[in-house]
């Protein structure tokens, strides 16, 4: 029997129904229509299905849809600010950090979570931080560079915000 689940998805209140043993990944893809959530393995190994659940970085293939009740979900579809791309998105493009792109939504979400936790990660910290995401095409180097560059830009703009805030 289907359950009705109410959650906040990318900032909007969304109601969807799903089977009790259906994963959040399947529910987001097939019930809500957020196909940016990718399935590479369905077993937590590839990270293509990465989302944020109440802010925590998780594999949506290892979460039940029912668990999203009353919680907030963020996916790649909610990353940009209207037509303005998130810095990470722009930097992935600029550094050619994607080829086939099927891993990209997961990497972007994981990188966003990483930079929130650690705004100035070293290369090693980025590699460890993104170890839960597999990419078959790029060889990772360009992804690491894109994240490093994005971190730089994000830190500059957050500093600017802070100093201009201080003046007021």
């Amino acid at each position: 029997m289907s359950l009705v689940v109410n959650s906040t998805i990318n900032g909007d209140p969304i109601e969807f129904s799903c089977e009790p043993d259906e994963t959040l990944m399947d529910a987001l893809r097939n019930r809500v229509g957020l196909k940016g959530v990718k399935e590479g393995c369905g077993t937590g190994d590839c990270g293509a299905c990465s989302i944020r659940l109440d802010g925590a970085l998780v594999c949506s293939c290892l979460v039940l849809g029912a668990e999203a009740e009353g919680r907030s979900v963020e996916t790649v579809e909610g990353m940009s600010d209207g037509p303005k791309l998130h810095v990470l998105q722009s930097k992935f493009l600029e550094h050619a950090a994607l080829q086939c792109g099927v891993c990209t939504p997961g990497f972007l979400i994981a990188a966003q979570a990483l930079l929130e936790k650690n705004p100035t990660p070293t290369e090693e910290e980025i590699r460890y931080g993104l170890a839960g995401n597999l990419c078959r095409c790029t060889g990772y180097d360009k992804i690491v560079r894109a994240v490093q560059d994005a971190a730089k830009v994000m830190n500059k703009s957050s500093k600017r915000k802070k100093t201009s805030g201080g003046k007021k």
Partner: peptide, 15 residues
């Protein structure tokens, strides 16, 4: 920048 890029970073690209 690759022409398929924006679709791929926004989740629009259809596999």
């Amino acid at each position: 920048v690759r022409p398929d890029g924006v679709d791929k970073v926004t989740g629009r690209a259809r596999y």
